[in-house]
Design a protein around this nucleic acid. Structure first.
Lengths: 135, 135
DNA sequence: TCATATTTGCAATATTGTTGCATTTATATA
DNA sequence: TATATAAATGCAACAATATTGCAAATATGA
């Protein structure tokens, strides 16, 4: 499962990468670098940063940054056709103002945005509010 | 003009705040903290960070963070009814993949987002593509 | 099994942002 | 207009986040 995911993205199978990817699989929400650090026993911080960078470059995970919050990371959808830094996700990013957690929420389709004069490649929607658990 | 803007937001008029606000007025795009530093001659970094923080808290400017880019800042619309950290902007955030600049682009209305089970307070839309100048 | 390109781990360093505290300044009001 | 006072500033120290270069270790294709 994890092995196949790394192979599909043409990333060499190393035990550290498998460990890091497992942390993402264990979470149903977006996680910060510090969350990954907490989940690992013994690791090298520089290697972690490089692992994250290569996961992003290969389209395995994506960054989510909410104003006023630390950077978070989440798995890409399996069908995300990552190309030239552009992701193709049919989900929105939701942050709960109570628990502060960030979730990728699947939606049937994203609204169509039209900006006269601009070429649009990718639309990302960030929503703030209250999640199901905190309501 | 600048003076009135600060008064309206109940911020004390100091020469440093006027200088920083002027930098925002001189730009039609979102700017990074480093851009402000470059535009100022002699200043204290800590005071700059505190100035930015109070501008954000009073709803004078807002943060824009695009994945893989540094944090940027832009003036809020005059009618942004900032309350409890929630901004009310009828614009989208656009980043050009060529020049990397970030712009606030006004739109007549934002699309309505519906997420069953979630309470939605604020919607922010980030678009990537090619701007008018770079096309 | 081996050659090779990739990945890792370490040291050093850069960037970005915060806290505490004494001094200075803007503003309300007497 | 002078002054009391609450807010803002400037400095030192520090915390958190991230990057680069390089030698050693490892994964993978042939």
């Amino acid at each position: 499962m994890i092995t196949q995911l790394l192979k599909d993205k043409r990333l060499r199978l190393t035990s550290f990468r498998k460990e890091v990817l497992q942390v993402f699989m264990d979470n149903d929400k977006a996680i910060a670098v510090s969350d990954i650090e907490d989940a690992l026993n013994d690791f090298d911080r520089i290697t972690l940063y490089r692992t994250i960078k290569s996961f992003i470059e290969k389209g395995l995970i994506h960054e989510i940054v909410m104003p006023g919050d630390v950077k978070k990371l989440a798995l890409c959808a399996v069908d995300c056709n990552h190309e030239e830094g552009v992701h193709d996700h049919s989900h929105i990013h939701f942050q709960c103002k109570i628990c502060k957690e960030v979730f990728c929420v699947d939606v049937p389709s994203l609204p169509n945005i039209d900006l006269p004069g601009y070429q649009i490649d990718e639309v990302e929607i960030q929503v703030h509010g209250v999640c199901e658990k905190c309501k």
